[in-house]
């Protein structure tokens, strides 16, 4: 028994000698975001102005992710593509490592899973800022915080943060392809909005929320969308050649 203990201790000692330092408690990272934010009375107006300034946007590019954290697993859906208002969409989507494509021109809407394109319900709500604007008019937040300015890609941005709850009037306004109309519990969420200091336009939105799932505990969500390439005249929407050949096939 003593021999075993000595061996165990010698392994520990040699391993500790070789691998070095201890990990001390360091709450700075945990407190970072809350310490740095301050209440701004004019924050809601600033956000609303930024959302209004998006009215002249006719096309934009999008890089986004939706993340769900359940137990030990963090799953992410990634989006990258372009939208031309009122109804053109070209989007790459990655769900758990598998790639999908979406192409829409008016009511001509298809999604590609694997090697095959399938018709889908056309997307109608293509202006995220209007969705956020509706939310703020129906459920204005009680407090808006301002965070230190941040540079997103190369754009210096003012950052605002607030909590609010989507009320019943918004709950039917989901994507046209969604058939989940039985929503009963409005969800509170934390919104963080990045406003470009140069042109006052909305640059990024992050929505964080949680839900208690029976058997699974909390699933925490984080949806983040970055807008760029506004009104780019060079943006062209061309039907993918494999989609064209598929629908032309007898």
């Amino acid at each position: 028994m003593k021999k075993k203990r000595m061996m165990w201790l010698s392994v520990l000692a040699s391993a500790m000698l070789l691998t070095g330092c201890n990990l001390v408690s360091d709450p700075a990272l945990y407190n970072q975001e809350t310490v740095q934010r301050s209440v701004t009375p004019d924050g809601l107006n600033q956000v609303s102005t930024a959302l209004s300034s998006m009215a002249d946007v006719k096309s934009y590019e999008l890089k986004a992710s939706m993340q769900a954290h359940t137990g030990r697993f963090v799953q992410t859906v990634q989006f990258y593509g372009s939208v031309k208002l009122p109804s053109e969409v070209s989007m790459d989507e990655t769900i758990g490592g598998a790639n999908y494509l979406i192409y829409q021109d008016g009511s001509f809407a298809y999604e590609k899973d694997g090697n095959r394109w399938s018709p889908m319900q056309p997307l109608t709500a293509l202006t995220p800022w209007q969705s956020l604007s509706s939310l703020l008019s129906v459920s204005p937040p009680k407090v808006v915080y301002q965070l230190p300015q941040q540079t997103v890609v190369s754009w210096l941005c003012d950052v605002y943060q607030f909590k609010t709850v989507a009320s019943g009037t918004l709950l039917g306004g989901m994507g046209a392809t969604s058939n989940m109309n039985q929503r009963t519990v409005p969800r509170e969420a934390l919104y963080t909005v990045w406003v470009d200091t140069t042109d006052g336009k909305l640059r990024q939105i992050e929505v964080q929320s949680t839900v208690g799932v029976p058997g699974l505990g909390t699933t925490a969500f984080d949806a983040k969308e970055l807008f760029f390439g506004f009104n780019n005249p060079k943006l062209k929407f061309k039907i993918p050649t494999d989609l064209l050949s598929q629908i032309e096939r007898p």
């Binding site: 989006f79 997307l123 989507a166 994507g175 392809t177």
Partner: peptide, 17 residues
């Protein structure tokens, strides 16, 4: 994929969806 994109493009209600 279309439904997920639709959810994303409606940040006002994405938490519920």
């Amino acid at each position: 994929p279309g439904t997920l994109l639709s959810m994303l493009l409606s940040p006002g209600t994405v938490a519920q969806s």
